[in-house]
Design a protein around this nucleic acid. Structure first.
Lengths: 72, 72
DNA sequence: ACACAAGGTGCTTTTTAATGCACTTTATAC
DNA sequence: GTATAAAGTGCATTAAAAAGCACCTTGTGT
């Protein structure tokens, strides 16, 4: 999952849950400016920042072995 | 997947592939000091740093909906 | 005991993420 | 058109990640 896709997933999830950036930032304990920056694709957040956000959205970061061409 | 578990997974994967920290850092294009810090659990890497490392190890970051108690 | 390789750590500098504030943009509703 | 809400952006400050360097620790082999 590329960086841009991760961000898109978070943003779509927030919108699906109908939470505003303001509320999500409050709930996640990150600055509103930071969340805005992340969602607009301008940033390179730390893992902890990303996890705080994902957590509130009921999601989590994971690592998996990449699919190879032979898997397709 | 908690932060500590993410790191552990990366470290185990590196060891399974029998790659040294030095080589991994070179291949991933991150500083050796940074990789050491991450693997020893002292850091809070940026997503891009984590992805560079995971990529070389044939892994990728992903986001998934958290399991709930009712799933267990 | 010694040499070597790999991993971990303290110190430092440079870069950049995190943050707040104020402003703009955009869409929606009156 | 204008108020309101939500999202995006420029600027400045603070905190912390990224990085290199030198050194310590640990394990392995001779």
């Amino acid at each position: 999952m590329h960086f841009h896709q991760l961000i898109k997933t978070l943003k779509e999830r927030r919108e699906a849950l109908q939470v505003t950036q303001y509320d999500l930032a409050e709930l996640a304990g990150v600055g509103l400016r930071t969340l805005k920056q992340v969602e607009s694709g301008k940033g390179n957040p730390t893992v902890i920042t990303l996890q705080k956000i994902a957590d509130v959205l009921g999601m989590e970061l994971c690592l998996k072995v990449k699919a190879t061409k032979s898997d397709i």
